[in-house]
Structure formats: C-alpha cells, structure tokens
Nucleic acid binder design. Structure first.
Length: 162
DNA sequence: GCCAACGTTGGC
DNA sequence: GCCAACGTTGGC
C-alpha cells in the first residue's frame, strides 16, 4: 500500500527560531524540541511520518505567517531537553519519574516561499477559513493541515527549492 | 502592552 | 471530580 503523505503546520516564534534560522542551520535541519502540550505531542509521536511536509509558521511576530515548508527527516524520539536541568524545556517531573513523555522530530528545510503567505493573506481565502491557525484563541503549536489547504498555500507562496 | 482564550494545577 | 486560580500563548 502506498504511503500517504500528511501535512502539518508548526508554529515558531521567529525571535526564538525562524525559518531563516533553519535555512542557515547545518544541513538545513533542526530537531523540533520543547513541545510541552499533549495534543501537539500526540500528533508528533503518533502521526508524523518520514517525508511528511510541514508549513513553517511565524507566531507572535511582525508579520505573522507561513515562510516555507520543511520535511520530516526523523520520526519521533525522546526529547533530550526534557531531562536536561539546564534547558528551559526541562521537565523536573519527567526526570524524577525517570520517564520522559516528550518527543522531538527532525525537520529539514524543503521549500522557501518567494512570497511569504501572511496571516492576512490566509484570512482572505474563503476555502482556508477552517484552518485551525486562523481560529481565535487557537494555541496548538502543531496542527494538521488538509492536502487541499496545503496546495492552496503553495500556490500563494510560489516556493522554490530551499 | 493589553487581554482573551486556553491548558494545567491543586484545594476541596 | 469540580472548578477557581494561575501561567502561557499569541493576535492585535
């Protein structure tokens, strides 16, 4: 049976880590660590598959929007930062129990948009109005995206190889 | 900087 | 198990 590719959106504050940081990273790859929300974790742990494509969204920024696409290059593995007391993602409870519930994945820059698809652009497209990221109060940092939505966004972003 | 919406914590 | 209080997210 053919592997079905899934599509995702992940938020990052560009002050912390932007899509441009990812382009400059060694092998244009980063570990996506520090997710500390169960719903987001479950998506990464159970549903992220090699080759899945991820929209890279800048949140809490000026401007907010999608700047490119990355690809899953390593499926879920235990997030080492959860057990590192020096990390801001440290989870003392996980350390104490000797049980790390958190996972990371690796993603690699895949496409960069020649025109970022800003939040305001997304809001103008009626067929994207169901997107979770556009809902008021939506805080989920890892979200599923429909193939249909993904394709529309690619058209808007005019991507080139990253 | 404000504040609404959300997820988590902890007292009961 | 309820729910108020709290801390965080993130658009504006």
């Amino acid at each position: 049976m053919a592997q079905q590719k899934s599509y995702w959106l992940m938020k990052s504050e560009p002050e912390v880590f932007s899509f441009f940081d990812l382009l400059k990273a060694p092998r244009k790859t980063t570990s996506w660590e520090g997710v500390r929300n169960y719903q987001a974790r479950n998506l990464m742990r159970d549903n992220f598959k090699l080759g899945d494509l991820v929209l890279f969204y800048h949140s809490n920024a000026e401007p907010t929007g999608i700047f490119g696409v990355c690809q899953v290059t390593k499926e879920a593995y235990p997030d080492p930062f959860a057990l590192d007391p020096k990390s801001k993602y440290y989870d003392a409870d996980a350390k104490k129990k000797g049980l790390n519930p958190w996972v990371a994945v690796d993603v690699k820059a895949h496409l960069k948009f020649t025109r970022p698809v800003l939040r305001d652009d997304l809001k103008k497209v009626a067929s994207l109005s169901d997107m979770l990221v556009l809902k008021k109060g939506s805080r989920l940092s890892v979200q599923p995206v429909k193939e249909r939505e993904f394709k529309i966004i690619l058209e808007l972003g005019q991507p080139v190889s990253a």
